[in-house]
Design a protein around this nucleic acid. Structure first.
Lengths: 263, 263
DNA sequence: AGACTGTTGTTTTTTTTATAACAACATTAA
DNA sequence: TTAATGTTGTTATAAAAAAAACAACAGTCT
């Protein structure tokens, strides 16, 4: 029995996060390669110690990923991968549902010092988390959105969000270029030369987003590091960035070649 | 800081299967109760040792479930439960997708001694797994389905499947009663008295299903035990149950009051 | 006897959970 | 001012639990 090439660690990790142990993953993978194998064959294919194969198979049967023949020796048959994955996800899904309602109960009865929270400045790490928070804030915008950001970022992460706001806020966008349509109620200022000077030079900021003059999100990404962002509703913070925005807006009108698009 | 009532073990288990550790779950739950808490407060609410709170929070931040203020002391804010769960599921979903394609690759290049497998008899445990396999077999039926089962079972688990077969097989059903419509091409024999005698008395079988004279699935459920089933394409097995079916069918016509419905 | 299956214990290893100690800083009281 | 006290954030390390690995044995078949 050739052991086949052993499965990638990544695959096993993936199966682990679906609720299997390393052995369970190995045995399941082994069974997919050789449907109807005996315990000893599984041991040989998967590299799992023979004595450990039995309890592991028990668990897999229990989880409904494997069925057993009642021959001697026993033979085992694995659910095809698609169905197997669905089954594993089902188990997780039901847990997720339970946890969801349970946590919601806890959440609605929480104590929450809103007053002070507002003055705090929050850090967000990881580009995905930043994008999420940003999209949410833009989606919740009531009247006004101010943006300084390079177009690549807007295009890849924000384009749809900007068109899909419920309350049609007035948007002012300062960026380096623009493709396609401009959203309604929107002014796009395109700084054709050296946009970098404005916000990408020293401090590595790659974007400033001010929502309803009430919330700011500033993205900072220095090369090499994970991108991070700060988010606040603090007045001081807001004043600073509102001023900064006004300053930039005024500055580029005078010093740069600016093209204006109206939505 | 009142510790609040401690979260149910079930909730923590659910969150564990979503990829959190016990501590991570406790801290997240704690933060939901008291948004914007400091590490020490979290320790007090959640019961997690203070020194352990920090690395746990790191991981939660990493997973995008928590954001940090840059005050001193640091304050922490949890993603609301709905979004938190979605985020956790996203991580799992991407793993599931990866595992799915990866396993599929392994699966298509498997070696599979079909010849011998056909002669094996497989055991399936757990009612859900049994139902799944049964529904699949019925769905794949080509020409003929023979069923002996009590109507409660058919009604709760099989009703829709029987109406939705692609290839309109001829169906013969022996049962104890029937409600509503009868599927097309179907003969239902209703044994009005003592159906138990046929298949529920001693051996505790609660159903026999023969598909295309090619596969049999026999469900056995003794009270107290988990229901189990055997499934086979073995000729000997098939012969036995085909004969059994014929025997029952003949027997009840003569000894019992039978009502016949035609679909 | 020898090869193999299925089972049962018992280590070893790894991951989580728990405790302890420390430096940095702030607050209070003498 | 200094000493005493308390708090935060870190680090190291011990204990416990879960997984993984190994060893041994009885039964079965050849």
């Amino acid at each position: 029995m050739s052991p086949g090439k052993e499965p990638s660690g990544q695959l096993i990790e993936a199966l682990k996060s679906l609720g299997l142990t390393k052995y369970e993953a190995l045995v399941y993978i082994g069974l997919l390669q050789f449907d109807g194998a005996t315990a000893t064959e599984i041991h040989e294919i998967s590299g799992v110690p023979r004595a450990s194969v039995y309890p592991v198979l028990d668990k897999l049967v229990q989880k409904g990923l494997v069925i057993v023949s009642n021959t001697v020796p026993k033979r085992f048959d694995a659910l095809p991968p698609k169905k197997g994955i669905i089954k594993l996800k089902e188990n997780i899904e039901s847990d997720a549902e339970f946890a969801g309602t349970e946590l919601e109960n806890i959440y609605i009865s929480r104590m929450c010092p809103e007053k002070e929270r507002q003055e705090l400045i929050w850090s967000i790490s990881g580009s995905e988390n930043i994008i999420n928070r940003l999209r949410q804030s833009i989606g919740e915008a009531g009247t006004e959105i101010q943006i300084i950001s390079d177009y690549d970022f807007i295009k890849t992460h924000l384009h749809d969000t900007l068109f899909k706001t419920d309350s049609n806020p007035v948007m002012q966008i300062i960026t380096d270029r623009w493709e396609g349509e401009v959203p309604p109620d929107t002014t796009v200022k395109i700084v054709e030369d050296k946009i970098n000077e404005c916000f990408e030079s020293k401090n590595e900021m790659s974007g400033i987003f001010i929502i309803d003059s009430k919330r700011v999100l500033v993205i900072m990404s220095s090369p090499g590091h994970e991108p991070s962002a700060i988010f606040s509703e603090s007045n001081g913070f807001l004043d600073f960035f509102s001023n900064y925005w006004r300053f930039i807006s005024y500055h580029i009108d005078r010093k740069h070649t600016v093209r204006i698009l109206q939505g």
